[in-house]
């Protein structure tokens, strides 16, 4: 069976129109080809329509930052991806909603680079910038679809994937990995018996790795069972996202919609109660917090 782990760049051609990907061309601007090469950004077409593509190439290390290799996202990689998103927003700034170009995220990253220099500069800004850019593009109307083809792990998944309108993932048989930490790691850090964790993970999707667990929590919108399905499903999701955004239904795409799916799928029962109770208490406290309609706000 085909496996895209470590092969994010190869997966691009299975998702967009074959042979259409032009690396480093982004919203009409050409990026320096030597800039953070493992962060693969560029333009392609899908069913003839121009899209922005963002992927990781796990085979390339960053010669300027020795802790960036094997698909890890470093300072430059996150900022480069954010830059690609901002260029996309800028290119379509004056276009109507229906013509905002889609952004396709090909997800295969083991996480953020754990280096000292990364901490000195503040790598959280790199991942944060990419997430804010993606959220802005999504809210500006660009359909963003993440296609998980390999590893979608922890902070890497957060910045490259979890801000999408919709997240599709190849099923577990393709070697897809979605998690924060493997169970053995969780067991070691929390000092909880691994056998107990394994047993609990069968009935509770909240901590264990796997595409289906994330699906039950809402974190994956759709599981894709064959490589040939990727292209048509990504296209179908783009159409659906456009339809929802045209209707102003921005809460039916993106992270909040996944929280709602998680509730519907039964994976996030506590969240449902939190939302309900906080709404209730907020409404009760509202008039004393903001003051009544006519009596003005007095600090």
């Amino acid at each position: 069976m085909i496996n895209f782990v470590g092969r994010g760049r190869d997966a691009i051609d299975y998702i967009v129109d074959e042979g259409s990907f032009e690396e480093n061309l982004c919203g009409g601007e050409t990026l320096d080809p030597e800039w953070a090469e493992s962060a693969v950004v560029g333009s392609a077409t899908l069913s003839g329509e121009t899209v922005t593509v963002i992927a990781n190439d796990a085979g390339i290390a960053n010669p300027r930052f020795r802790m960036v290799y094997a698909g890890l996202m470093g300072l430059e990689e996150g900022f480069k991806m954010a830059h690609a998103v901002y260029l996309t927003i800028k290119a379509d700034k004056d276009k109507p909603l229906a013509e905002k170009r889609p952004i396709i995220l090909v997800v295969d990253t083991p996480g953020m680079s754990p280096g000292k220099v990364e901490e000195i500069i503040g790598i959280y800004k790199s991942t944060g910038a990419y997430q804010l850019a993606s959220a802005e593009a999504r809210r500006a109307g660009h359909p963003i679809v993440a296609m998980v083809v390999g590893r979608a792990i922890s902070g890497g998944f957060l910045c490259h994937g979890l801000q999408a309108d919709r997240i599709l993932a190849l099923s577990d048989e393709f070697g897809t990995m979605v998690h924060v930490m493997p169970l053995v790691g969780i067991a070691r850090v929390t000092k909880i018996n691994i056998m107990l964790l394994e047993e609990l993970s069968e009935g509770n999707p909240v901590f264990a790795s796997g595409v289906s667990h994330f699906y039950n929590l809402g974190g994956v919108d759709e599981i894709i069972e064959s490589v040939a399905d990727m292209r048509p499903r990504v296209k179908a999701q783009i159409d659906e996202i456009r339809r929802l955004k045209a209707a102003g239904e921005y809460d039916k795409v993106g992270p909040w919609s996944r929280l709602m799916s998680g509730i519907k799928r039964g994976g996030r029962k506590t969240s449902e109660k939190v939302i309900e109770l906080m709404e209730e208490e907020f409404n009760l406290a509202l008039s004393s917090w903001l003051g009544g309609e006519d009596d003005g706000f007095t600090p």
């Binding site: 930490m181 969780i186 929390t190 901590f207 929590l217 974190g219 994976g267 969240s271």
Partner: peptide, 8 residues
């Protein structure tokens, strides 16, 4: 970590 996926 005990609720890693939901936390993420």
């Amino acid at each position: 970590l005990q609720e890693a996926n939901a936390g993420l």
